[in-house]
């Protein structure tokens, strides 16, 4: 991890109608850092994550990625998005394309890379997430855990500078959570810059460099996981942890 900031949010505000979902949020993520965002539902975690590649436009403040402010809608924004991998809660694999086509589509159509080269990379990524033998199947034929691993491979195929995970395990059956977290943990170990919105406290503890706690649209606390889980400073975080860690 270097000290160079890759993602910088400065005084970011976002409203859904009268609802102030992001309130003066400041956050800086350095290269190679793994930031886990936790907090109660409705606290703005997902919105924060989606704002970083502008799937959710913000009302004020600035977001900078790799030294450049997020461009407005258009080609330059598309280019920026291609450098930021995103994994969704509901997988969102392209339902009419095979697993292999899902992984190859971005590099071939967006980056205009040669299909033969991309195919090789896609197959090795699928190998890595353990789905290579299902390459010719369609998303609906795979389990949730498998689909989510393909979604990670699809994002990685673009060779992104950072990865955003928006509750990647929340829609999974419990026995499939582990296989997805394993892939994410190995990514984190390899030095991928990651912003992960999740309810998996175990993952936050062992894979995160930093835990960010959000409540009511505000970024309440930010600390290394050991410190955060042992000594939450704010009452809001104490309250949250007491509710989830007692079971």
């Amino acid at each position: 991890m270097s000290d160079e900031a890759l993602i910088v949010l400065d005084k970011v505000n976002k409203y859904f109608g009268p609802l102030h979902v992001l309130q003066d949020v400041d956050l800086s993520v350095t290269r190679g850092e793994v930031v886990v965002v936790i907090g109660p539902s409705g606290s703005g975690k997902s919105t924060l994550c989606r704002a970083i590649n502008r799937l959710e436009p913000i009302n004020s403040g600035t977001i900078t990625f790799d030294g450049r402010p997020l461009p407005a809608e258009g080609r330059s924004l598309a280019r920026l998005r291609s450098e930021v991998g995103m994994v969704f809660q509901s997988f969102n694999l392209f339902a009419h394309k095979t697993i292999l086509q899902n992984v190859m589509l971005g590099p071939v159509k967006v980056r205009k890379e040669k299909p033969a080269v991309v195919r090789e990379r896609a197959m090795s990524l699928l190998e890595r997430v353990g789905i290579a033998n299902q390459a010719e199947k369609y998303p609906a034929q795979l389990s949730g855990g498998q689909q989510q691993r393909v979604a990670i491979a699809r994002a990685l195929a673009m060779q992104p500078k950072a990865m955003l995970f928006d509750e990647p395990t929340s829609a999974l059956d419990p026995e499939m959570v582990g296989e997805v977290l394993d892939v994410m943990t190995s990514l984190a170990r390899e030095g991928m810059t990651m912003v992960v919105v999740t309810h998996e406290m175990g993952f936050a503890r062992h894979a995160a460099n930093r835990v960010v706690f959000m409540a009511d649209g505000q970024l309440v606390e930010s600390a290394p996981p050991a410190e955060f889980f042992a000594n939450p400073k704010s009452d809001r975080a104490k309250d949250f942890l007491s509710k989830i860690l007692t079971h």
């Binding site: 799937l55 598309a78 920026l80 998005r81 995103m86 509901s90 969102n92 589509l105 971005g106 673009m158």
Partner: peptide, 20 residues
């Protein structure tokens, strides 16, 4: 989510519409 996933890998509006 299909359009969001397409935009997230950097597809333009036209690519998202015609391919996804």
């Amino acid at each position: 989510g299909q359009a969001e996933a397409a935009r997230a890998i950097g597809m333009t509006f036209r690519q998202t519409l015609t391919m996804i």
